[in-house]
Computed example of a mutant assay.
Amino acid sequence: MTRPRATVVSLNQRIRDDIEARIRSGEWPPGHRIPSEHELMARYGCSRMTVNKVLSMLAAHGVIERRRRAGSFVARPHPHIESVALDIADIPLEVTQRGHDYRFQLLSRRKRRPRRGHGPEMQVAGDGSLLVLQSLHLSDSAPFALEERVIGLAAVPQAQQQPFDRIAPGSWLLQHVPWTRAVHRISAVNADAEQARRLQVEAGTACLVIERQTWRGEQPITYVRQMFLGEAYDLVARFAPGRPARRD
């Protein structure tokens, strides 16, 4: 009997999410051998074709490595991979750790093609479309950060089904889509009239802007531009020889 398409897609996603969750949690560290196709078939009650499709997708995204006659293994970091001087922070967690109440507002949501000439958007979109989300992060009901994010639907098709009305897009991505490389760009700008209105400050107020693009393997996942009030936010990166940088 042929399964309905929706059921197959749901099962594929469930298996993929489960494997990625085990990798993110450290249960399956780099180099760990993933259960064989037959073991995964028994675990999830599915066909070998379904398992093979999921493993092929994970390998294409650089999450796992498939070795002929040896099996599949959690990918090890590439020796030339770029390291991030700043961790990818979860804003809700940062706000609550500072002893404040966090709230999130989704200001707009739409699906569109990348803007012509906008390099990061064109990279993230690839041959597909973007999910564009404008959000406001609040601390104790006061604006904390204004965010515009684009998510590549070719890389993260499940984002289309997420309403993002209760969880911030960045938090959801950190929980569901492992990244392997990130590039940050930090700049100081003055808020224009619309940005100032959203942040409840005067136009021209000094702000800190963080732009970030992330990849999984060679596939771009998301590009985000976050604007913080200059007087309310700072960045400190701690470094030590042989240790990754840490952001306060």
Rank of each mutant, 00 (worst) to 15 (best):
R69G: 03
F73G: 10
P178R: 04
V177K: 10
G71A: 11
A125C: 09
G170P: 00
R166H: 14
A89I: 12
P178F: 09
L130Q: 06
W179E: 10
L153E: 15
R149S: 13
D127T: 07
V150T: 04
A142T: 08
L131K: 14
V63N: 14
R67F: 05
S139P: 02
S135A: 11
S141V: 00
F73Q: 06
A75K: 03
R68E: 15
T96W: 06
S72Y: 02
Q134P: 01
I151S: 08
R66D: 12
K111C: 07
T180V: 11
V63L: 13
R109H: 14
E94N: 07
H80W: 14
G119D: 11
L153R: 12
F73H: 10
P163C: 01
D140M: 01
H61V: 05
A145T: 05
E65N: 07
S108L: 09
H80E: 09
A70P: 00
G119N: 07
E65M: 05
G119E: 12
S141G: 00
H176W: 08
W172T: 02
E148Q: 11
L131C: 12
T180L: 02
D101K: 13
H100Q: 14
R69P: 00
G126I: 03
G119T: 01
I167N: 01
A85Q: 13
F144D: 02
L146P: 00
Q123G: 07
G119W: 09
A85S: 13
L138A: 08
S135T: 07
L93M: 09
Y102H: 06
W179C: 09
E65D: 09
K111M: 11
P143C: 01
R69T: 10
L136V: 03
L146H: 09
L146A: 02
R149P: 05
D87S: 07
P114I: 04
M122S: 11
V177W: 13
Q97L: 09
P157Q: 02
P120L: 06
R76C: 12
V63I: 15
P169S: 03
V74L: 05
H100T: 02
H100G: 04
K111Q: 15
A75Q: 10
A125G: 03
V74W: 05
A182D: 06
A89V: 14
P79I: 15
A89W: 10
H100I: 02
Y102P: 00
Q105C: 06
I64A: 06
E82Y: 04
G170C: 01
A85Y: 15
G71V: 04
A75S: 15
L173A: 10
L106N: 11
W172A: 03
D101S: 13
V156G: 02
S171H: 10
P163S: 01
H78V: 04
S83P: 05
H137W: 10
S72T: 14
P178E: 12
V124S: 05
A154M: 11
A145S: 15
R112A: 12
A145P: 04
V95G: 00
R66Y: 08
R115F: 01
W179N: 13
V63K: 04
V124G: 03
A182C: 07
L138D: 07
